[in-house]
Structures are given as C-alpha cells and as structure tokens.
Design a protein around this nucleic acid. Structure first.
Length: 271
DNA sequence: ATATCTGCCTGCTCGC
DNA sequence: TGCGAGCAGGCAGATA
C-alpha cells in the first residue's frame, strides 16, 4: 500500500523521465479515475502542458504544469512507470499519458481506487491535510498540541490525513511499536516523554521506509519495476505470530479503527 | 464539533 | 480442480 515512503520513492523515480517533458496525449478506459473532468475535457486541458517539477504532499504525487497541477493518488494498488511502448502488457493500465519524446507514462491500478486530478491547486481536491511529518515545521510541540483533548485511539489518529499527512496502516503500526505505545491508547493521555517518543518514532519509521525505497508487501513497485526493501525491516506489520525482534514474545494482530493492527503486547502494554 | 460506519473495487488466499 | 467466502484498506461521503 503506497504510503509516504512509497510515494516519495515513486516521485524520486519519476523526476528524471518526466521533468521537462510535454504531455501530448491522454488515453483511459476508466473515466472515473479522472477528476473532476470528463476524459475529453481532461485531455484538452492537459495536452500541450509541460511538467516543470514533481513533488509530494501527503500521499499525492504532484506534477507542476505550465498552468495548474496534475496530481495522482495511487490508493491501494496504483503503479506509475514510463516506457517506450503504449502497450506494456499490463492488464491493469487504466490511464496512459503520451509524452513528447515518444515515451508513455502508464498508470496501472488493479483495484481501480486510484485517482488522477487536474486542478489549479492542491486545495481544490485535497483540502485540510495535516502537517507533513518530515518537514521542519512539524515539531514535538505541534504533535503535542494536536494530540491534546483528542479521545481517539493513537492508531486511528495516525491514519487520519487531517491529523497527520502521509502515514498509512504499515507505518502507523511500525511507529507505534518503535514508540512502545499501544495502538488503542487514547491520544490525550500521553505524557510529554511519550509524545516525544511518538514524534521521534513516526519520523524514524518513515525515514527508514524511504531509505529502503518503500514496502513491496504486495502491489507496490518502484517506477523501474523493482521491489522496495522496507518490508524486510518491519518490526510488527504482517508479522503476527512471529517473535518480536526486541523481546521474543509473539506479535499479535487485532482490529483498531476497522484496520488490521499489529503490535507486541509486551513492548506496547495497554497502559 | 468529533467519531464511526459504508461503499468503492478486485486480486488473492483459504477451506471445502 | 473448482468455487465461494473473506480479506486487504485509503479516502469520500454519510451517519450518529
């Protein structure tokens, strides 16, 4: 599942083939993926525009155009890659961009959850995103203030993109393990020390994910088609029944906020 | 206002 | 081997 580290890896991999390129065409067999325009309107607005920069905000891939923003959200199973042929043999390509150098940008998405946006600004399709966890303006004090007076479980808050941008199910579990905090712990009950631990752990888990170029648990691949290695370094995600790397007790899986949640009952006690 | 629930989607795994 | 059930889950939109 592409989260901040996976999306960041995709962004870095797309810069070389895409920045400076002009988009000359658009094909889709899944109009619902395009927001908010119809395919014809979308293509008319997009073609002829040059990609000047590719950045990331939360889990959105942002392509800065001459006029406005082309944004892509990979959701669960989305993949992006550039190749020299329009037919890639990939049955799940539902949107394809033609580039001025004869190459093609393919958006493959088995589950069809992914979306492609064309809008003047990010706020037009993704308003109200929380802070970027790896930016300098995200500080322990910011996290403390946002946790205060919230009764929700830590796991639920970490998944909430309005609370903090970019964290998903994998890195939420990994961050809570690193912090030694139970996923169901009520946000407002954290001590200053625990808040600092959570802050450090969120950033450490995300930075590790980026360093290992994302987690190829199932669908995620880098734009060059190879797998990331982040999953080889998980402490808890997908490791239910296996021994905790720190204490040897079995990792267990529960449901928190309708999400599969993995943790060590010994290293992350309930209270 | 905050918190929780439902629907969107389909590949994949598991049990029979 | 075939088949149905259940699971995976980010996010928009609805509901409590």
């Amino acid at each position: 599942m592409p989260e901040l580290p996976e999306v960041e890896t995709v962004v870095r991999g797309l810069r070389a083939p895409l920045v400076g390129r002009t988009i000359t065409g658009l094909w889709t067999d899944w109009p619902k993926a395009l927001r908010p325009h119809t395919p014809d309107d979308f293509a008319a607005l997009l073609t002829g525009q040059t990609v000047h920069a590719i950045t990331r905000r939360a889990k959105y891939i942002l392509c800065q155009l001459d006029d406005g923003l082309l944004a892509i959200h990979l959701k669960m199973t989305g993949r992006l890659y550039v190749s020299g042929a329009p037919e890639s043999g990939d049955r799940w390509v539902h949107v394809r961009f033609t580039l001025d150098n004869g190459q093609y940008l393919h958006f493959s998405d088995a589950r069809r959850f992914g979306r492609v946006y064309l809008a003047p600004t990010l706020d037009d399709f993704a308003p109200g995103l929380g802070p970027e966890p790896l930016e300098d303006d995200f500080t322990p004090a910011v996290l403390r203030d946002r946790l205060a007076r919230r009764q929700r479980a830590l796991k639920a808050l970490l998944l909430d993109q309005a609370f903090l941008a970019g964290v998903g199910n994998i890195y939420a579990d990994e961050a809570l393990f690193r912090a030694g905090l139970h996923p169901r712990r009520a946000a407002s009950t954290l001590t200053d020390d625990e808040t600092h631990r959570l802050y450090d752990s969120i950033r450490a888990a995300l930075r590790a994910g980026i360093d290992y170029e994302g987690a190829s648990v199932n669908w995620y691949r880098k734009p060059d088609g190879t797998a990331g290695k982040s999953q080889e370094h998980f402490f808890v995600y997908g490791r239910d029944g296996q021994p905790c790397a720190r204490c040897g007790q079995p990792i267990i899986k529960i449901r928190v906020a309708q999400r599969g949640t993995h943790y060590c009952p010994n290293c992350q006690p309930e209270r």
